[in-house]
Write a protein that binds this DNA or RNA. Structure first.
Lengths: 208, 208
DNA sequence: TGCCGTATTGACACTTGGTGTCATGGAGGG
DNA sequence: CCCTCCATGACACCAAGTGTCAATACGGCA
C-alpha cells in the first residue's frame, strides 16, 4: 500500500483511545456529576488502565476542558484574518461568532456541546479551569489586537481591556445559552452584546 | 468581669489559629512555591495537625484566596452606596478603586498584598481559583447594577457585561501592578482603564 | 467548688488524584 | 529474523481531602 501514510496507524490508534476515553468520561460525568465519578471508573469504562488515562489527559478536569480546546486557536486565527481596516467591534464580534456558531447549529455536535458547557458551568472545579483557559485566550487576543494598532502608551492596556470585554461577552452568552437550555439563540445574543460594547471598542482607542 | 463579652475567648482563639495558619502558609508558599509546600508542613509550622488545617481552610488554594475574600463584599457595598444618579462609569470606577487602594497604599499590608497577588498570578491552580472568585463577584456586581436601572429587555445583559468589564479592568490592573513589581501606580492605572471603558459603560445602556 | 454539655483538637484509617518506574508485548523497519 | 520504539499495565508511592472517635479544655450552672 502507501509506503508513507500521512497519518500512521499508531497515530490513529492513539486517537481512537483518546476518543474512547473522552466519550466514556463525558457520558459518566454528565450522568453522575463531576465528583461522583472516579478516574478508575472512566478508565475501566474505556477499557484501559488508570495509568493510561493520565497518558492522554493531565487531569480529570482536562478531559472536559480539552473538548473546547480548539476554540481559542480558532478565535485567534479569525481575528488575525479580519481585514486591518475593520472597526474593532466588528472584527471582535466575528471572532466570537466562530465558537458561538458551533453551539448554534442544530446538530448532535451542538447538543453534546450544550451538555459539556452545562457540566462546566455548574461544576466549580471545571468552571475554574475553563476561566483559566479563557484568560489564556484573552492574552492571545490581546497580542493579536496589538498587531492591528499603532504603538502608543495606552495601546497595551486598551488591547487587554478589549480582549477582556470580548471574552466577557463570550462567557455571558455561553451562560445565558446554557441557562436557557439552548433555547436562546447564541448568535443574536452575541450581536446584542457587541452592540452594547461597540462604543468602547471603537471610540475608546487611545489617542497617543 | 464582663458577664457577656462581645467576642468570646473561644472565638478569639479560633481567630488566632486561623491567623497563625495563614501566616505560616503565606510565608512558606512565597518561599518554596505552591507545589513545593505540603499541607503537613504548613500545619506543623503553625503548630497544629493537618486535620486542623482543613477545619479552617477548605483547600490549599483556599488559604491564599481567602486572603482576598473581603474585596468582593467591599466592592459590592461600595457600588450599592454610590448615588443613584451617578454615571455607571464613575460608580464602577470608584467600586474598583476600593480594593485597588489597598494595594496602592505604602504599608507592610500592601507589600504582603503584592506577594500574595504575585503568587496567585503565577500559580495556575491559584489563578484558576481567583478567577472563579472573580466570577462570583461579577454576578454580585451585576445584580447590584440591575438595581440601579429601569427594567428592560437588555438590562440583564448590559449589567453582566458592565460587571464583566469592571472585573476585567480590575484583573488587568492587578496584573500590570504585579508584573511591574509594584512600581506602577494601580490607582492611576485604574483611572486610565475606565477612561477607555467609559463610552460603553455610559452610552451603552439599553434603550428600552 | 464540683459537674456537665459543648466545641476544639489530634490520631488514625481511608479514598482519590496524580506520578515514577519497570517489565512486557506488539508493530514496523532493516 | 532480529531489533528498536512505543504504548500499555502493574505496582508502589506521595499528597490532598474526609470520616470517625477519643481526649481535652472551656463555660455555664448548682
Amino acid at each position: 500500500m502507501s509506503t508513507r501514510p500521512a497519518v500512521t496507524l499508531a497515530q490513529r490508534k492513539r486517537q481512537l483511545v483518546s476518543d474512547e476515553l473522552s466519550e466514556a468520561a463525558l457520558q459518566l460525568l454528565a450522568l453522575k456529576g463531576f465528583d461522583g465519578v472516579t478516574i478508575d471508573e472512566i478508565a475501566v469504562a474505556a477499557g484501559v488502565s488508570k495509568r493510561t488515562f493520565f497518558r492522554y489527559f493531565a487531569s480529570k478536569e482536562d478531559v472536559v476542558v480539552q473538548f473546547l480546546s480548539g476554540m481559542g486557536e480558532a478565535m485567534r486565527a479569525e481575528l488575525a484574518a479580519r481585514p486591518a481596516g475593520e472597526p474593532p467591534s466588528v472584527a471582535l464580534r466575528h471572532t466570537v461568532q466562530v465558537p458561538v456558531a458551533e453551539c448554534a447549529d442544530r446538530s448532535d455536535h451542538a447538543e453534546r456541546a450544550l451538555r459539556v458547557v452545562r457540566l462546566i458551568l455548574r461544576t466549580p472545579a471545571l468552571r475554574a479551569r475553563f476561566l483559566e483557559r479563557q484568560a489564556q485566550w484573552r492574552d492571545d487576543l490581546a497580542t493579536e489586537l496589538g498587531r492591528r494598532l499603532p504603538p502608543g502608551p495606552d495601546t497595551d492596556l486598551w488591547a487587554h481591556l478589549a480582549a477582556g470585554m470580548t471574552l466577557t461577552a463570550f462567557d455571558t452568552v455561553l451562560r445565558r445559552w446554557s441557562d436557557s437550555d439552548g433555547t436562546e439563540d447564541p448568535t443574536t445574543l452575541t450581536d446584542r452584546a457587541f452592540t452594547l460594547l461597540a462604543p468602547a471598542l471603537d471610540s475608546g482607542q487611545p489617542s497617543v
